[in-house]
Write a protein that binds this DNA or RNA. Structure first.
Length: 487
RNA sequence: GGUGUCGUCGCCAAGAGGCUAGGCAACGGUCUGCAAAACCGUCAACACCGGUUCGAAUCCGGUCGACACCUCCA
């Protein structure tokens, strides 16, 4: 099926076709590993996952999906410095080597990050590579050198800056976002580095080392510049080194449009001479209770915070997928609970597909109600998950599982398997009878209740049911007996 | 200050000139001793004020409100 995607470059929905045959090369801006990922971060990764799964399943493309791990920046350096108050003992002993400390901290959070996204239903086997910025220092220096040699960079106080004014003579700077440069310069941008730049819009390619910071040697134009890379240069370099230029799609949060992605385009084009990628896809932000997530509002949640509160990561995945990726999503606990119920409703339907129908009433499904077409055509239209889900619910209501002929059920199992290759929140299996350990105490109370019930002493029966409930179990009456389930 | 997005039923969330989106909740029913679950059914909304139009949530202007970006940020 042809896939259409909104492209931030053209600000419109475009037909997507890969540059090279049937393989899509996609780069996603990944995490800076200085802390646990929060749900806002995770929305961006869930969006990238939705996109790559849709391309695989609906577009039938092979995927080369690359996501970088930023393991060097101001925050990772700050938090890994000797004596850091946020150093955890799980990271090991700190040393006097700043680079070793940096690696220990970032490795720890990288592992936690990979665990988190796995819980959210992202299959880490889908990644072609998860490159680390610190493994590409040489390549970054090489790119900086090319930019410098072509005259689009200058050295100032031991750092190297990109010359935006110079570059603007050659190509547009501001492709992804309209910037009012006159007012931009008047704006309250405050940066300690400002005075070292020729112009506030210039950005750093290479930062001079400071005391007790990790650094790499770098000789540019016969000048020794011990330091570390700027933030934007890493993506340009890794895209080039791993995927090659131009590649197909670049994803990231909408906040990265400017300056990060704008700077990436400028760097790649200035240095390598190639516009990096034709498609830019950005996801909107997630808010919590209608507000930007921030620690001061008390609405800042990491995935593990939510798991501690009893939320299932798959329900978080489904709740985030229930909003379109380009609209703000208002994350609320009630929303996750509603998503859970909706998700389980579909799950129950899937379970029923594995049960045989004794006297089926529905023997065929008309072509216009083909579930695969209904759902995939919505997803193919700029990943419209809310509509896809609505179509799914319409279908379930129109074709109840208990009325379907077995042959239809088998077809639907195949279709649900495909749909779940994208959503990845359901089990495409018969319902498993879970062997729960019911405490003897509960079983005894339940038996007492059944006896009271048989004696028509319903008052006593209700008291016993309440007692069982207070102990965390619920009694479900059946024709001749009862089931005990955890609350 | 500049730029942009958005205000849709109790909640979440689609729609972008005429055609019931959907989910959760609520209410009624089937089932049950009563429940729970499940299933069936009901229900409603387009921030405000003007304008364009035969017709406006949808287009235009204004007002109010929310949020974001311009600084590290998904």
């Amino acid at each position: 099926m042809q896939i259409y995607l909104y492209n931030s470059l053209s600000r419109s929905i475009e037909e997507f076709t890969p540059i090279e045959n049937n393989t899509v090369r996609m780069y996603s801006c990944g995490p800076t590993v200085y802390n646990y990922a929060h749900i806002g971060n995770l929305r961006a990764f869930l969006f990238a996952d939705l996109l790559q799964r849709s391309l695989r399943t609906i577009g039938n493309f092979n995927l080369k999906w690359v996501m970088n791990i930023t393991d060097i920046d101001d925050k990772t350096i700050r938090d890994s410095q000797l004596g850091s108050s946020v150093w955890l003992k799980e990271m090991g002993e700190q040393t006097h080597d700043p680079l070793k400390n940096l690696k220990a901290l970032t490795k720890f959070y990288e592992n936690e990050f990979l665990l988190d996204i796995s819980k959210l239903g992202i299959n880490t086997k889908h990644f072609y590579e998860l490159p680390h910025a610190t493994d590409y220092i040489k390549q970054m220096q090489n790119l900086i050198e090319q930019i410098y040699n072509k005259g689009f960079a200058y050295i100032s106080n031991g750092s190297v800056y990109f010359n935006v004014a110079k570059w603007s003579e050659v190509d547009k700077y501001g492709k992804l976002k309209n910037i009012d440069w006159d007012n931009f310069k008047k704006g309250h941008r405050i940066d300690s580095d400002t005075y070292e730049r020729e112009d506030v819009s210039d950005f750093v390619l290479w930062k001079q080392k400071k005391e007790n910071e990790p650094y790499w040697d770098f000789i540019l134009d016969n000048i020794s510049l011990p330091g570390r890379p700027g933030w934007h240069i890493e993506c340009s370099t890794m895209e080039y080194s791993i995927l090659g230029l131009p590649f197909d799609i670049h994803t990231g949060g909408i906040d990265l449009q400017f300056p990060h992605h704008e700077d990436e385009i400028a760097q790649s084009k200035a240095g390598y001479g190639i516009e990096p990628n034709p498609f830019w896809c950005h996801n909107e932000f997630l808010e919590v209770e209608g507000k930007k997530m921030s620690k001061s509002f008390g609405n800042f949640f990491t995935l593990r915070d939510l798991i501690t509160k009893g939320f299932d990561p798959l329900d978080i995945r489904f709740s985030i997928l229930s909003a379109h990726y380009r609209s703000k999503y208002n994350f609320t606990f009630d929303g996750v609970i509603a998503a859970k119920k909706a998700r389980l409703k579909v799950q129950d339907y899937i379970y029923k597909l594995f049960e045989s129908t004794a006297s089926p009433e529905i023997l065929s499904i008309p072509n216009e109600s083909n579930l695969r077409e209904l759902v995939f055509s919505e997803l193919a239209n700029d990943l419209h998950t809310p509509k896809a889900i609505a179509k799914l619910f319409d279908f379930i209501a129109s074709f109840p599982a208990e009325k379907l002929a077995d042959s239809l059920k088998n077809e639907l199992i195949t279709i649900f398997t495909l749909i779940n290759d994208i959503f990845n929140v359901w089990e495409i299996n018969p319902k498993k009878e879970i062997d729960l350990q019911i405490p003897d105490e509960i079983t005894i109370l339940a038996k007492q209740r059944m006896i009271a019930k048989q004696n028509k002493d319903f008052a006593a029966a209700d008291v016993l049911r309440e007692k069982i409930k207070s102990l965390g179990f619920v009694i479900v009456d059946k024709k001749d007996g009862f089931d005990i389930k955890p609350l």
